[in-house]
């Protein structure tokens, strides 16, 4: 059993290494290969890009993880919270039909809409169906339907054209040694890290945050301690929706706004959450960061189109070694 596990891990690792080795063998034919004077610089650049991608995934994934932690629902529509946030900000900010707000107030409004959407799903879908005794698997399927519905509403309203926000569109990179980063991307990364720190402080130091962790740990006991569990769950939905919308704006800023951006990001969120350890908010952050870095670093050797696939491969490899995820704990027996 153990042998098999090590073997599979080795096989997967081999798969990862193989193209690198062949690229090295090709030598000068492959100027973008891992050898050559500029490789260190490019690797550093990919690392920086990866961290940026990772913290954005993390912002969107934390809500998904908290919802799963408190009510054990896998919310397949979480990616659409991201899309709705990004496209709503686009409408307010850059659409010819919109009011043409500056991006900052538009982003704030998008976060508010995301929180509202989270609350609507709680009140309109989760709570009534749960009260009727709908099972978690059935509810998971319901969220798949909700995801389709929301995605296509966005498609009708927004269209298929990729969009960019009106401000901070084109910027030249500032050089930091071998690494170049635009002030926009740097700001987004720093803001994203600050938001993640804020979420950690909220969960760790505030009464409401502790209540969220208490509900995740033991719902009945939380109720027995006088915590209004339904209100805590509503709070988690709103927090998750708001964070997803913010992540959507960030992702739209550094990449582009599209009607299916959240759906594409959803896979990365799942990977990050599972990698970090299901149900732990900090695990979701750590896992997302790893996924982002792996996805970007893989472009050093492989086509950009495959970067998501590499992220998922790393997920499989890590789970083979640590089935409970990076920060997850093995279930205590007894």
């Amino acid at each position: 059993m153990r042998c098999q596990r090590v073997f599979t891990a080795a096989l997967a690792l081999g798969l990862v290494m193989l193209p690198a080795v062949t690229a090295r063998a090709r030598g000068e034919d492959a100027p973008r290969g891992p050898v050559g004077p500029a490789f260190g610089g490019r690797a550093l650049q990919a690392l920086v890009d990866g961290i940026q991608f990772g913290v954005i995934i993390a912002i969107t994934a934390v809500g998904l993880s908290l919802v799963f932690g408190t009510i054990h629902l896998i919310n397949f529509a979480h990616g659409e919270f991201v899309t709705v946030g990004a496209t709503f900000a686009f409408f307010l900010n850059a659409s010819p039909a919109g009011p043409g707000w500056h991006l900052i107030p538009a982003a704030v409004a998008a976060v508010a809409l995301g929180a509202l959407l989270g609350a609507a799903v709680d009140r309109g879908v989760w709570r009534p169906l749960r009260a009727r005794g709908t099972g978690l698997i059935n509810l998971f399927i319901v969220t798949i339907g909700l995801s389709l519905l929301l995605r296509h509403i966005v498609l009708v309203l927004y269209g298929t054209r990729p969009g960019s926000y009106a401000q901070y569109d084109i910027q030249s990179a500032i050089g930091l040694g071998p690494v170049g980063i635009t002030p926009r991307d740097l700001t987004v990364t720093v803001l994203a890290v600050l938001v993640l720190l804020g979420v950690a402080v909220l969960l760790q130091r505030t009464r409401t945050g502790t209540a969220v962790r208490a509900v995740s740990a033991n719902r009945d006991l939380a109720e027995a301690s006088g915590i209004d569990v339904r209100r805590v769950v509503l709070f988690v939905w709103m927090l998750g929706g708001g964070l997803a919308a913010l992540g959507g704006v960030f992702f739209g800023l550094v990449e582009t706004v599209t009607w299916d951006m959240g759906f594409k990001l959803l896979l990365m969120m799942f990977a990050g959450i599972i990698l970090g350890g299901l149900g732990s908010a900090y695990g979701a952050m750590a896992g997302s960061l790893v996924i982002g870095v792996v996805a970007q670093m893989s472009t050093l050797w492989f086509p950009v189109d495959l970067q998501y696939a590499w992220a998922l491969l790393v997920l499989i490899v890590v789970l083979l070694v640590r089935p409970q995820g990076i920060l997850g704990r093995a279930e205590r027996v007894g």
Binding site: A217, N218, S225, R332
Partner: peptide, 23 residues
């Protein structure tokens, strides 16, 4: 109320458990 099983918040500290008691 003290339940028969799972009567503490296992992932919370002792202090946080008490804080939740007086939520």
């Amino acid at each position: 109320y003290v339940p028969q099983l799972q009567n503490v918040f296992a992932s919370l500290t002792v202090e946080e458990n008490l804080r939740m008691g007086v939520y």
